[in-house]
Every structure is written in C-alpha cells, then in structure tokens.
Amino acid sequence: MFTKEVIDMIILGIGQTLYMVVLSTLFGYVLGLPWGIALAVTNKEGIRPNAPFYRVMDFITNIMRSIPFLILLILIIPLTKLIVGKSYGSTATIVPLVISAAPFIARMVESSLMEVDPGVIEAAESMGADAFTIITKVLLVEARVSLLVGVTICFGTILGYSAMAGAVGGGGLGDIAIRYGYHRYQADIMIVTVILLVILQQIFQYAGMFLSNRIDRRRV
C-alpha cells in the first residue's frame, strides 16, 4: 500500500502544505498588520480616533471575513490567474489564502493592540511621542506577546484552509486526503495525511506558545 511512490507523494504534500501556509501567513501579515494597526489607531478608543474611516474599514473587514473560503477560492480565480498565471496548484492557492487570512489577521492585530494599557500610551504622549513612535515603540512592543499568539492562531487557521484548497487542486496534504481518501476510498492514506496535519498543527501551536512565553517580560 505505502509504496515508495505514495511515500514520496506524501513528503511532497508536506512540503507543499508548508510552502502554502508559511507564505500565506507571511503575505497575510504584510496586508493584515498595517490594516490592523489602522483599525486600532482609528478606533474610538485608539490614539487617533477617526469614526468615518474606522466605520468603512470595519465594514470591509466584516464583509471579507464573512465570505466562505471555498466560495472566495472560486470567486477570485480571475485575480489568481492575473497574479500567478494559473488557477490551480500550491502557488495559486496562496492568493485566496492571503485574501481570506488578511482581514482575520487585521482583527487579531487590532485586538492585540487594543489590549495595551492606555496609561502606558498616555505616558508616552506625555513625553512628547508622536503617533508613529507610539505605534512602533509602544503598541507593537507592548503587544508583542499577544501578537505572536495571534500569529500562531492564524497559522493554524491557514493550515486548515489550505487543506480545503485541496478540493480544487491546490496541492498539499489536504489535496492527497481528498483525492485518495475521498475519491478512491483509500482510508489508510487519508488517515495518514490527517494525522500529519494534526502533527503539524500541534508543532506550530507548541512552538508559538513556547516562543511567546519566552519573550514575555511580564513573567517574573
């Protein structure tokens, strides 16, 4: 059953999954981090409240988060083709993964930054810090533990989505599970891929929590 071919395929699947998830998380943060900062800063409790701007951003964020991933995957095929040149395969899957992860990441970042003690922000303002300094030297630094926990959660969520992308030829472990396990009734291969996904999830969860505890200076 587990011939060399199957094993090679599974190893390739692990590689593809990691490739999709890591790059999607990265690009997701490229979009989601500034987006989340913009939300936190213009929030009515933020350092530069701006109700009209916040309301628009807030609405867009909600809309984008509401679209089911599988629908989004198909909906943005033209965009994917424009960026990657084709609509299937691991690289093409990164586009919808990033677009669905970014608003989620923005919300995580917003909530992490809103947790920062307003007193500390006030202290920075009393020292003459401008908004940019407060964002880069106070908000992002003081919220770093919460932000890292956010990265861990986003990583797990994107891992789950990437498996879903297998349904439309996205590659990776999810793709294998669907093709062999679902279409060919090869339950053993399906079980192995699912176990591998669980292990990946565990590793990243553990690593994320370990790191965030390590960098937290609030612990004595």
Binding site: G119, E122, A123, S126, M127, G128, D130, V141, E142, R217
Partner: peptide
C-alpha cells in the same frame, strides 16, 4: 510635543513599558 519633553509626568499606575528593562 517638544514642550512636553520639558514636562515630566508620573502616574498612580506607574505606566512603565512592561516589555522593556
């Protein structure tokens, strides 16, 4: 902002950066 650097301020809750030494 420049003038504020000539006015130090301390607080009931100390308001130190918890992630910095």
């Amino acid at each position: 902002r420049r003038l504020r650097s000539n006015i130090g301020m301390i607080f009931q809750g100390f308001n130190l950066l918890m992630q910095k030494s």
